[in-house]
Amino acid sequence: MIKISGLTKYYPSKLGRQYVFDKLSFEIPSNRNIAILGSNGAGKSTLFRMLAGSEYPNSGSITTDLNLSWPVALATGIHPQMTGSENTRFIGKINGISNLDIYESKVRKFSELGKKFDLPVQTYSSGMRTRLAFACSLSIDFDVYLIDEVTSVGDAKFREKAKKSLLERSLSANIIMVSHEMDELRNFCDSAIVLNKGELKFYDDIEQAITIYQAL
């Protein structure tokens, strides 16, 4: 379970503090594949970044005993001056991978970067960086995969490969996903959280959640 306790998040502005969340408390259920739904500006991305630990609340906390991924499909933590191989081994090391050679082999094969895998990431296109980050994440056994717009991963062929791998992962792990594509959410998720006016509500039925979200 992921527990949100007294979470407050705001951004300063000329008009004063703009609150995204104000003393929010909520528990995200375990053993479910969950879509996060909300209108533009509702705070989906902010919540997602805080779940991933890449952004911090002003007060309150998010706690869990689960092993969460970084946002899959975002090149978070990829160092541009390191090669694909070096980035892979570094990511594997900080995530406690015991056999880095096997891990690197999996990432090299899945990312389909060829010789580019041994060149600095700063020479990669944005799509290639995304493929590297995706491969690094999917090659680690996380309890929960945070998925951000999986349709943005590489070309059409690689996107299909990525979707298939995620579906396989969802059989043994869980997914929390943000996407503007309802069909994509239906494909991966069985339930949803609707974010509206700084409040979260969990729906056991994703279709019910989508209907409520679209009526906002």
Rank of each mutant, 00 (worst) to 15 (best):
P29G: 10
S98I: 11
R89Y: 12
R17H: 14
R159A: 07
T63A: 13
E149Y: 06
I91N: 08
L7P: 00
S98M: 11
R49W: 02
G41H: 12
P80M: 06
S85R: 13
Q122D: 12
I176V: 13
V144W: 05
I36M: 03
I212Y: 12
G77Y: 08
F142G: 03
T211S: 04
K161G: 06
F110S: 08
Q81N: 08
G114N: 07
T211N: 06
F21L: 09
L216Q: 13
V153A: 14
N31H: 15
F90C: 05
S172Q: 14
F134W: 04
L66E: 15
L132G: 00
S126H: 11
K116L: 14
I34H: 10
F134Y: 14
A162P: 11
Y10H: 09
V178Y: 01
V107S: 02
N40G: 13
F21G: 01
S152R: 07
N67A: 06
D204I: 10
S98L: 12
A215W: 04
V153S: 03
G77N: 04
D141H: 06
P57L: 03
N187H: 02
I210Q: 00
F117C: 01
I206T: 02
S59R: 10
M1N: 09
E104S: 07
Q18F: 15
E199T: 08
A133D: 06
M82V: 01
K106Q: 09
L66T: 11
Q81W: 06
N67E: 08
F48S: 01
S59A: 10
I94V: 15
Y11I: 14
T63L: 11
S69Q: 09
S139W: 02
F48M: 14
T83D: 06
A215T: 15
F142Q: 09
W70I: 08
D183W: 04
A135T: 01
V72I: 09
S152F: 03
N67G: 01
K157D: 13
F21V: 04
E160P: 04
E160W: 02
F142N: 09
T8Y: 10
S152M: 14
E160T: 08
L195Y: 03
T46H: 08
I36E: 00
S137W: 00
A173T: 10
K163R: 14
S105Q: 11
Y103W: 10
Y145M: 03
N187E: 10
I147D: 01
G41W: 09
S45I: 08
S5F: 04
